[in-house]
Design a protein around this nucleic acid. Structure first.
Lengths: 233, 233
DNA sequence: CGGACTCACATTTTCGAAAATGATAGCGGT
DNA sequence: ACCGCTATCATTTTCGAAAATGTGAGTCCG
């Protein structure tokens, strides 16, 4: 049996680099590391307790995902936000997510229905704890991601699911910006419920329309309530 | 002097890591490093003359692009090919490229038309040198990539263009597999000419249909002539 | 006073050694 | 003979020092 004392840190990822990548991604999408922030190695080294090379590997991976901006010979920084980027990400998400929604509704089996229903149930339970500020709860964020992931999971294409996940993360940064400045939370719970029902009842046209509205409303919210943050770069 | 829409000469990377990433991608895409091949550091170190860490950074970036498979604690290997992967990549390309083609036809200006025409011209000139085996000519491959890039370049979304480029590279591996085993080359020159004409004359429906056929025919060719390579994994 | 040049300094980038981990062969007990 | 255990080896993964590069202040001329 493995000796626990000798291996103090083996909780999450197997390699440190993968672990750092994961943690950095979380910090960036939640805007704990704000857009445009320079990512200096000595700072990261202290915060994450890893060496130059390991950090560099993580940053390179995130640069390929579009969350980090690599400026050759001048280091890395958190990818800046902008109106143009918001429009592009929203637009790309609609294109892909709508298509995947249709496919999932067509191909989804019993397991898919169960996954959709149970992830929504879990999301609603977490929402009850703090109905006013769900995005501040890390668990809500995870449950929200898993619900949307479940909705399209039966689409049959791991390739498109991976692309979708990347765009979802990039959009999540804007969701956080939006949430910090929106005066009152909109009725996300109701929207999620309606999407679930449309999906389970195999009403593809309705589900697709609801998803598109759901995605676009975030973009509108950011433009309305956090637009001043988008022109700094 | 206004910079040409197409820069055939790529600036060599300023950092070694970026350079190695580029060279490794070329080797993988052209199947110089065959699918499934283990990528051991000793071998790569000798072949590319870079250190462990630099190579690791390049491999991590390519793993995020889907060209390399990272097996934690057990190293890297060239991403394997499979029927399923071929179907997914083809399918995703059709979804995205068709949409971008429509947008480019709608938004394209004079510079776009010039880029499309000139990249096709260049492609045809290179084709004349060795009409039987164009894919063996690295310059043809570059010109081919640039023609297809030019076609959709006016779509207005850098985000979708980046996704498209990734899928194009993943598909290029299958093009190489297909070319090695196809008895006679198909009439790619004619197809490119037809696509160009449809695009320039703003016939979106026709252009889209031609593009889809163009993309799917590669998949069919691989299935027909190199299918035996796809079941090894 | 302004512009260009030089020289430290700060920061990134690269390297090879050292630690960690997985794979394998050899040994011993049942 | 077979299974499990251990020691050894091959390979990956991590580290901090060293080299390379960009940045900015200060200085010298016109």
């Amino acid at each position: 049996m493995p000796d626990r004392a000798i291996r103090p840190r083996k909780e999450f990822g197997k390699t440190i680099a993968a672990d750092i990548t994961h943690r950095l991604r979380e910090e960036i999408v939640t805007c704990g590391l704000p857009p445009g922030e320079p990512l200096r190695f000595d700072v990261l080294r202290e915060r994450f307790g890893a060496s130059f090379t390991t950090l560099r590997e993580a940053l390179t991976a995130l640069a390929a995902e579009g969350l980090v901006d690599a400026q050759e010979q001048r280091g890395f920084r958190v990818a800046p936000v902008s109106r143009q980027d918001l429009v592009e990400v929203t637009d790309a998400r609609v294109l892909i997510e709508v298509e995947l929604m249709r496919r999932a509704i067509e191909k989804g089996d019993d397991d898919w229905e169960i996954a959709v229903i149970s992830t929504l149930h879990r999301l609603k339970r977490i929402e009850q704890r703090d109905p006013e500020h769900p995005l501040r709860d890390p668990e809500w964020k995870i449950a929200h991601r898993q619900f949307h992931q479940a909705l399209v999971s039966a689409c049959g294409s791991a390739t498109l699911l991976a692309i979708r996940a990347e765009l979802f993360d990039r959009a999540e940064r804007y969701r956080h910006l939006s949430a910090s400045f929106r005066p009152r939370p909109r009725d996300k719970a109701g929207e999620h419920q309606a999407i679930m029902q449309a999906a389970i009842s195999r009403n593809a046209d309705l589900a697709v329309q609801l998803i598109e509205t759901h995605i676009r409303s975030t973009a509108d919210n950011v433009a309305d309530h956090a637009g001043h943050l988008l022109d700094t770069e």
